[in-house]
Amino acid sequence: MLLRKLEITDTQNVFDHWLSDDRVTDNRVNAAHKSVAETYDRIDKILSKYNDLDFCYWGIELKNSDELIGEIDLYDFDSSTDNCQVSYSLGYNWWNRGYGTEALKAVVEFGFKYMEYTQNIGST
């Protein structure tokens, strides 16, 4: 598995693999997308934030197949406590295979090493 920036060409995969799936979005704040246009707008918004220094958002991709299976991000950075939150979504076909755990470990390490967050990172 590897983490990478999303691209506008990922829109259909993001829609198909997790954002249109009620099983996945049941655990998210927002409801399942009903159209690819909704997903396109979301990806476009994400892309516009990649230049922000505190924007930490990655697609989760399988190394052996280059298949995009999910997303993970760090957010709600609190400089007074050096804490932040993490959120991730995986397509239903990849649940219970350890991909979420592997991605979570990678972004927590990133937060500690590169963003210097040294206290608890909460999960939602």
Results as ranks from 00 to 15, higher is better:
residue 62 L to G: 08
residue 17 H to I: 03
residue 96 N to E: 09
residue 116 E to A: 13
residue 43 I to V: 07
residue 55 F to H: 14
residue 81 T to R: 10
residue 56 C to A: 06
residue 22 D to Y: 05
residue 23 R to Q: 13
residue 94 W to Y: 15
residue 116 E to H: 13
residue 33 H to M: 01
residue 92 Y to F: 11
residue 9 T to D: 12
residue 93 N to D: 12
residue 46 I to Y: 10
residue 18 W to R: 00
residue 7 E to G: 00
residue 73 D to M: 12
residue 43 I to S: 01
residue 99 Y to F: 15
residue 14 V to D: 03
residue 105 K to S: 08
residue 42 R to T: 12
residue 32 A to I: 02
residue 83 N to Y: 03
residue 18 W to S: 01
residue 98 G to S: 05
residue 107 V to H: 02
residue 104 L to S: 07
residue 116 E to M: 04
residue 58 W to E: 05
residue 16 D to F: 01
residue 33 H to N: 02
residue 110 F to A: 01
residue 24 V to C: 08
residue 83 N to R: 14
residue 19 L to D: 07
residue 47 L to T: 00
residue 70 G to K: 10
residue 36 V to R: 06
residue 100 G to A: 15
residue 73 D to G: 08
residue 81 T to N: 08
residue 80 S to Y: 07
residue 108 V to F: 02
residue 34 K to I: 02
residue 34 K to P: 00
residue 72 I to P: 00
residue 95 W to N: 05
residue 98 G to Y: 11
residue 80 S to T: 11
residue 105 K to W: 02
residue 33 H to D: 01
residue 29 V to G: 06
residue 43 I to T: 01
residue 19 L to N: 09
residue 7 E to V: 02
residue 14 V to Q: 04
residue 69 I to F: 08
residue 94 W to F: 15
residue 6 L to R: 05
residue 109 E to K: 14
residue 36 V to L: 08
residue 87 S to W: 03
residue 27 N to H: 14
residue 75 Y to I: 01
residue 90 L to T: 10
residue 10 D to G: 01
residue 81 T to P: 00
residue 37 A to M: 07
residue 97 R to N: 13
residue 15 F to G: 04
residue 8 I to R: 13
residue 48 S to I: 00
residue 84 C to E: 05
residue 81 T to F: 09
residue 90 L to R: 05
residue 116 E to F: 04
residue 110 F to I: 06
residue 26 D to S: 12
residue 106 A to N: 02
residue 15 F to L: 05
residue 22 D to N: 11
residue 2 L to I: 12
residue 57 Y to M: 08
residue 5 K to D: 06
residue 108 V to S: 03
residue 26 D to T: 02
residue 40 Y to G: 00
residue 11 T to H: 03
residue 88 Y to H: 09
residue 74 L to P: 01
residue 23 R to M: 04
residue 12 Q to S: 07
residue 66 D to Y: 13
residue 82 D to K: 15
residue 15 F to N: 04
residue 55 F to R: 06
residue 58 W to H: 07
residue 37 A to T: 13
residue 3 L to Q: 06
residue 10 D to R: 04
residue 54 D to P: 00
